[in-house]
């Protein structure tokens, strides 16, 4: 009798449990699909516009799918309006800066996470301060700084005149600060890596130390491989931010044009290119502009789809399980 009652209540609970689960999954799906729609809307709009010919643009019946599907816009921006060079510049600057930035940020984050030394608290406060200072504000003093790059006057002391190292108008204006942990949003990455390493079990390092690894060896052989997912996610962040930053290139580069600067200047460029009858005509410029937008993020989208594997497998529980 008693046994039976227990069984009954158990099955009641499980009915509610499964019902609740089903309702929840419907609510969740609805919620996520709504958000996904908002996110995809501008992207779909861009794609749709970029494949349109001028005739489709005039046509009110064309809402999303172009009737005259054309690659003409892409051909124009790449081959006639010179969008290939900015792409190359952007790839060089953002890829090299990102590699330098993530390597140093992880190193610094590890230093803050695992070692206590005099002044580590004060320095960590400075990490937060560097995130806060808008790059735009110190860009002008930094510009003056980079024109004659010197480390506390050491170079001037040795050769007796202002340092001849000029980073302005070269990709090094971005790479060198990144190499010294002062790249775009470097502080945020240091913060993330610090938390990540702090959350990892100390046993890993102890095991490595017992096996005879030094501090740096432990870091390189144990800690870095175990934080692969975070390294990849942070690299993607960093790459995207360097890729789309337009304020830095405006200040530090005058003759090298990046994709973001190209996009900002697009209306001037397109007006130089269009025959005078079509100048300022939105029906010709908008499909071109949307094509330029799609083209400028296409490499990011591809890279991003390729990196999906890492999100899917999660952390693979990084040695904790196996």
């Amino acid at each position: 009798m008693e046994n039976n009652q227990i069984r009954n209540s158990a099955s009641d609970i499980s009915v509610f449990y499964y019902l609740g689960k089903a309702v929840w999954s419907i609510v969740r799906a609805f919620f996520l699909i709504c958000i996904a729609f908002v996110i995809l809307y501008p992207l779909v709009y861009m794609l749709s516009m970029s494949f349109r010919s001028a005739a489709d643009f005039y046509d009110v019946t064309v809402v999303w799918i172009p009737k005259h599907f054309t690659l003409e816009n892409y051909k124009k921006i790449i081959f006639e309006m010179g969008m290939a060079t900015p792409l190359l510049n952007t790839v060089i600057i953002s890829a090299l800066s990102t590699v330098a930035q993530i390597f140093i940020a992880a190193l610094t984050g590890y230093g803050f996470a695992r070692f206590k030394f005099k002044g580590s608290m004060v320095l960590f406060v400075f990490v937060v301060i560097t995130i806060m200072m808008p790059a735009q504000m110190i860009n002008i003093p930094n510009y003056l700084n980079m024109r004659n790059l010197d480390f506390f006057g050491i170079i001037e002391l040795i050769i007796g005149k202002p340092s001849p190292i000029n980073l302005v108008n070269t990709p090094f204006a971005f790479i060198v600060p990144a190499l010294f942990g002062q790249g775009f949003m470097a502080g945020l990455f240091i913060l993330i890596f610090r938390m990540l390493f702090q959350g990892m079990p100390v046993e890993f390092e102890e095991a490595a130390t017992i096996d005879g690894c030094g501090y740096f060896g432990t870091y390189m052989r144990v800690m870095l491989p175990n934080s692969k997912t975070a390294l990849i996610i942070c690299s993607i962040f960093s790459l995207v931010w360097y890729w789309s930053d337009y304020y830095g290139p405006y200040v530090f580069l005058t003759s090298i044009r990046t994709l973001s600067v190209y996009l900002m200047d697009f209306f001037n460029i397109v007006n130089q290119y269009l025959p005078s009858a079509f100048k300022g005509n939105v029906y010709y410029t908008i499909p071109l502009q949307q094509a330029a937008c799609v083209f400028s993020i296409l490499p990011l989208l591809v890279m991003f789809l390729l990196s999906q594997k890492f999100f899917r497998q999660g952390l693979e529980r990084s040695g904790i399980v196996g």
């Binding site: 190193l107 070692f115 206590k116 320095l123 480390f151 190499l179 010294f180």
Partner: peptide, 18 residues
């Protein structure tokens, strides 16, 4: 000392570029 070594590149950058 090891801790200082880990944050040293960043520290130089902090002084020069920040």
């Amino acid at each position: 000392l090891a801790g200082w070594m880990f944050v040293l590149p960043w520290f130089i950058g902090l002084l020069v570029f920040f």
